[in-house]
Amino acid sequence: MSSRVVVAIRVKAAPARAFEVFVSEIGLWWRPNPLFSFTPRAPGVLHFEPGPDGRLIETRAGGKVFEIGKIRAWAPPHRLVFGFRQATFTPEQDTEVEATFEAVGEGETRVTITHTGWDSVPQAHVARHGFPSTVLLTRLGEWWRTLLSAYKDKEAEQE
């Protein structure tokens, strides 16, 4: 099966501003997830060192820095590609995130995240994350609640 994950969202901002906030304010909008911690320690603050030779790093409370990945494509305001590694990955294990910013409608942007490369992470490693079905079902439930809430708000706007 494909190990590609694609998630898209439409925002009320031009691509240039969406790109800027995505990069410069990632420390403010990123939501750490215990299933995808970069290191075994408490999550730190994410920060992009911008530019074609830049990188995405996590800085922990004590000041230690973990490099999540180098920037592999830098094409503001339309495209950004960066590596995405957890501390437990071996050098051969590597995933990649592509973020695209496409103008749609009047002053709006579709932001699409495509996260690939999880097939480079052996099944045994993935299995060690442990995804008991109760956790999965809880997460799916939360996800649907978010979707339905957004749908409800949208529908209310049209009334």
């Binding site: 190990s3 994950v5 925002v11 909008w29 939501r31 997830n33 299933l35 996260h115 956790v135």
Partner: peptide, 30 residues
């Protein structure tokens, strides 16, 4: 469902949650 499939669903959920926060930040009144 395989562990990989479960992980990818959880990963999609994690990205969705962060992107919703990104959208909220981007669209907040200045």
């Amino acid at each position: 469902m395989s562990p990989m499939a479960q992980m990818l669903i959880a990963l999609a959920y994690a990205w969705r949650r962060s992107l919703e926060a990104f959208k909220a930040r981007l669209e907040q009144p200045s």
